[in-house]
Design a protein around this nucleic acid. Structure first.
Length: 827
RNA sequence: GCCCCCGUAGCCCAACCGGCAGCAGGCACGGGCCUCAAAAUCCCGACAGUGUGGGUUCGAAUCCCACCGGGGGCACCA
């Protein structure tokens, strides 16, 4: 509450400077001819309602970095746009009986205005929306290029289906068997779907992470590594003798993937995925009925049940046998649901002694357990605990006595020589299912022709625009809403000119966001998705900022896109984001904010109570950027007080008469500049704020001391205003103005250069040297910073405190770390 | 179950390559100045020995080992 005294009113300050900044156009990238360049990017927002506390933190942090690099003389690209396709807008449109664009663009405008008031240093001229035809035209264009390279294809497969949203989901959108979005239990459906062949890039996605080792958060790299899940092993061929009526002499060669070829002698049975077609093909006629029943049972299981590891093992004996290629034994073949149809070959050799899952199955079905690697641990057949560790081979014919690693090498080599198998690598990563049976997304630019089949829409006919559907027409009905727009669906084949139909699926919104950072480089470019010259200038993104919730999806897909574009010769770098920062969450009272808990903190309310700068300062000062902020632990009121102190200080400094200097003040300012700079460079933004506060306190003391130091204090206050401008842009501008700068005439604190510290002022004239005796402080000496070791040792030994502490004892060692420390160790 | 990260005052957090734990900073708290009184401002102040137990070292918040507590990731991927 402002009082009648000249209190600091953050709202008045905001209202005063915001229009001036708009006029000065301070943040347009490319303003400074010949300046070095830096691309600073926040993950773009989805337009749902207004901005919230999470945005305040993420964009606040990123803005500090962007402004810092501007002050350091870089030409900074700091753009903004919206990830404006997606399900929520479609659901809102159904509810309100309107077009999704209405809801979407209204929210975009709300957020844009909030960003402007929040004083983020965006270059607004590069604004984009992924739902604009000008944008999705190029999403479609890229899709077609991917398809030409065999990286976008259609196949029929069992896909994740959300019965609530009536759409398929990517594996990444299924969390614990439930729809990531609505929480409904996901089921399986057999559908023909579009995929990106991200698996072709698995190795590079993995290996190129090496270059990100020091600039991306460790845990993000780990999550990606786990997600890709490369495992080294071997493919081994097993001959399955089909047997049964009419197929006595039939056999089929089935390949399995194993990471433990050394345990081949311990393979006592064979399992195929129950839901794979292979199970039906191998099944003996008299077991057919049992298998069908089992398959029905499995298909009704939810993914949650199916994935729980403590579930008892189930399966069906298929009534056929497989030949173990090294032992010559005929081993029984089962179908079971613990083997996955879409990993490896969908079939395994089961080694119960050395694999827990196989052991559980063997015990349930009374199958033999044969130890072939002696690990020194008790027999799994007795304990029920498989031994997966290192050991020496036994019961393995010519390989007995070899260590595990040697055995793997030898057995694989022998299999290769005999044609029975070969070394192989498998990935957990699956191809990216990109088609969605929803309306508000990028239409897939494909035409289906009865004569020509699948035909690409020619580039010059892009974009394939969405038809004008709204309200109830968008209701999920198990098929794409686009199919209801009959006029739109009916088209002519670009190839033969005959009647044909459009593909009625739209793309996953992750496709849109996989290349938006490139579009920012040249948002109006019309001859391609981006201008290669502009991309050369700005890419890669020097600093990307966003939540860890995108650790896998968005970041992996973007990395994939970048590599494909590199292979197409369109971009030079292979990684889009040179550095990544994961900001923490804003929580409240130890819990994440939610409506049901009633502990939400409303950004708008905080801004009206404390002002923009106080909220910005609070989120950055609360702790390290990657830590969560508990709003109950922080104090925007404290930030207001600090900012008011800065504004008052500027006024008081401006009123000081004379132009005298004071070395102590100059040193304090130099030290503060040096420390703020180092902390900001290291992205320890909370520490940098503490140093700014320290400087503020020092300047306050200087003013109150009444010493003749006007020029020094003035320089210090200016440095403070410039630096603080990155954290609290309004207050810094106010202080700058109070210091006598004519902001309206263009002399803005946001168009200045970061202060530098004179190295001569950083050298201290004397240092306090701590003298310890046996690690305990016994004396302090004021010494020159460049004092020699011998000199210091002599002074320390002669000092009163040391002589007293030694009490006549012999000195054994003296550790000297000039000029700061001496440790005397007596006998 | 496996892997990773983190434990410093009442609270949020500092402490460079191992070298005085806080004149890093803030919140909250107590006191003072000012005031008829209060608010605001300004000034001053107390509070921890670094989760626990070992080890390395002249010296450990920092390095190593074990345990405890918290957070996160993966979890039938052969």
């Amino acid at each position: 509450m402002p009082t009648e005294r000249a209190a600091y009113d953050p709202h008045a300050v905001q209202d005063r400077w915001l229009p001036v900044w708009d006029r000065l156009d301070l943040y347009r990238a490319g303003r400074r001819e010949g300046a070095p360049k830096k691309y600073v990017l926040d993950m773009f927002p989805y337009p749902s309602g207004d901005l919230h506390m999470g945005h305040a933190e993420a964009y606040g942090l990123c803005d500090v970095l962007a402004r810092y690099w501007m002050r350091r003389g870089f030409d900074v690209l700091h753009p903004i746009g919206w990830d404006s396709f997606g399900l929520p807008a479609e659901n809102a449109a159904i509810k309100r009986d309107e077009h999704p664009a209405t809801y979407t663009y209204a929210n975009v405008e709300t957020q844009a205005e909030s960003f402007r008031r929040y004083a983020i240093s965006f270059d607004w001229t590069r604004r984009l929306h992924t739902s604009d035809p000008d944008y999705y035209r190029w999403t479609q264009w890229l899709f077609l290029r991917f398809r030409e390279r065999g990286l976008a294809y259609r196949k029929s497969s069992a896909v994740n289906w959300c019965p609530n949203d009536q759409t398929v989901l990517a594996n990444e959108q299924v969390v614990q068997g439930a729809c990531e979005r609505c929480g409904a239990q996901v089921t399986k459906r057999e559908l023909t779907q579009w995929f990106f062949k991200v698996t072709d890039y698995a190795d590079r996605l993995l290996d190129d992470m090496e270059s990100l080792r020091d600039t991306w958060p460790q845990r993000v790299l780990t999550m990606q590594r786990n997600w890709i899940g490369r495992s080294q092993g071997a493919h081994v061929g097993f001959r399955v003798r089909l047997g049964g009526a009419g197929r006595e002499d039939d056999s089929r060669d089935i390949t399995v993937f194993t990471t433990r070829p050394d345990t081949l002698y311990g393979a006592t049975f064979f399992v195929v995925a129950a839901d794979a077609p292979l199970a039906l093909e191998l099944c003996a006629p008299d077991r057919r009925e049992a298998l069908e029943a089992y398959r029905d049972e499995v298909s009704t299981l939810s993914d949650i049940d199916r994935q729980s590891t403590d579930r008892p093992k189930t399966g069906v004996d298929l009534g056929v046998t497989a030949l173990n290629p090294v032992t010559g034994e005929q081993i029984p073949v089962y179908a079971a649901d613990y083997v996955l149809a879409d990993y490896g070959t969908g079939a395994i050799m089961a080694v119960p002694a050395h694999d827990q899952r196989d052991l559980d199955f063997a015990r349930a079905f009374g199958l033999p357990v044969r130890v072939v690697v002696d690990t020194g641990q008790p027999d799994p057949a007795d304990t029920g605990i498989a031994t997966a560790g290192d050991g020496v081979l036994v019961n393995s014919g010519p390989y007995d006595g070899l260590r595990k690693d040697e055995a793997i090498e030898r057995i694989v080599a022998d299999l290769e020589a005999r044609g029975g198998g070969r070394g192989a690598i498998n990935y957990r990563l699956r191809d990216w299912l990109l088609s969605r049976q929803r309306f508000w997304g990028t239409p897939i630019p494909i035409v289906h022709c009865p004569a020509c089949g699948e035909v690409a829409v020619p580039d010059d006919q892009l974009p394939v625009r969405l038809p004008d559907l709204r309200g109830a027409a968008l209701k999920p009905a198990g098929t794409s809403p686009l199919g209801a727009a009959e006029d739109w669906v009916a088209t002519t084949c670009p190839s033969c000119g005959g009647p044909a139909t459009r593909d009625t699926d739209t793309m996953d919104t992750f496709v849109d966001s996989s290349w938006y950072y490139l579009r920012y480089c040249s948002p109006d470019y019309e001859d391609g998705p981006f201008d290669p010259a502009a991309v050369r200038e700005w890419m890669p993104v020097a600093q990307y900022v966003g939540g860890v919730e995108h650790a896998i999806l968005h970041l992996l897909y973007s990395r994939f896109f970048m590599k494909v574009l590199h292979d197409m010769g369109m971009v030079d770098p292979v990684e889009p984001f040179a550095a990544l920062m994961n900001q923490g969450q804003v929580i409240n009272q130890g819990k994440s904010m939610s409506k049901s808990l009633g502990n939400g903190v409303d950004l708008g309310a905080e801004l009206s109570a404390y002002g923009v700068d106080a909220v910005r300062l609070t989120v950055v000062f609360a702790g390290p950027p990657e830590d969560d902020i508990d709003w109950a632990d922080v104090s925007p009121a404290g930030s207001v007080k600090y900012l008011a102190r800065v504004a008052r200080l500027a006024e008081d400094v401006a009123a000081l008469p004379g132009s005298s200097r004071d070395l102590a003040v100059d040193r304090a300012v130099a030290r503060a500049v040096d420390e703020v700079t180092r902390a900001t460079e290291a992205q320890r933004l909370n520490v940098a704020v503490a140093r700014l506060m320290e400087l503020t306190n020092a300047l306050r003391r200087g003013v109150d001391a009444g010493a003749p130091a006007a020029a020094s204090l003035r320089d210090g206050a200016e440095a403070l205003a410039v630096m603080l401008g990155c954290w609290a842009p309004y207050t810094a501008e106010e202080a700058w103005s109070r210091l006598g700068h004519d902001v309206d005439a263009g002399d803005s604190v946001h168009d200045t250069t970061w202060p530098t510290a004179d190295p001569a002022l950083l050298v201290q004239e004397s240092v306090t040297c701590v003298v310890q005796v046996q690690g305990k402080v016994r004396e302090r000496l004021e010494v020159a910073p460049d004092i020699g070791e011998d000199d210091l040792r002599a002074r320390a030994l002669a000092s009163e405190g040391v002589v007293k502490a030694l009490a006549g004892r012999e000195v054994r060692t003296v550790v000297v770390r000039a000029p700061k420390l001496v440790n005397v160790v007596p006998v």
